[in-house]
Amino acid sequence: MPGQPEKHMNKPGKNNKTRTVYGPVATVFASVNTGSWRILRPGPDHSRCAGCGQCETFCPTGVIEIIDDPAKEGGRGKVVEIDWAYCKGCGICADVCPKKCIRMVEEKKGNENEERN
């Protein structure tokens, strides 16, 4: 790939920080739509979630986030948010949850606990 490193390294732009790119490395950061693999999907029971973050820590795809829910426990409550574009439905989150409040539900039926599809 002659010419490729120079082309990418000398490109002017606002994000042109001093970074460490040398040689003919891959330069396109892309993701595969692994959400299409899912057979089962995690259905968190938000009312019982304590926001401990075990599912967030152990999710191999890193798609789980614990976010604040203003509607729960006077603004101090936490809920689980999952990025459905990449969740592979492996079920680790349901297995490691100490309160066992994540249940794996069939993908076709959708998730009654989750508003977003």
């Binding site: 993701s31 191999p60 574009a85 492996c90």
Partner: peptide, 26 residues
Amino acid sequence: MYDIKNTAKGLVAHGVSTCAGCGLEL
């Protein structure tokens, strides 16, 4: 410098074709 097609929280893309439940990906 990098052409970012999809966003990610950390330094690793979320959609990687490792098997479901892969310990390596974690």
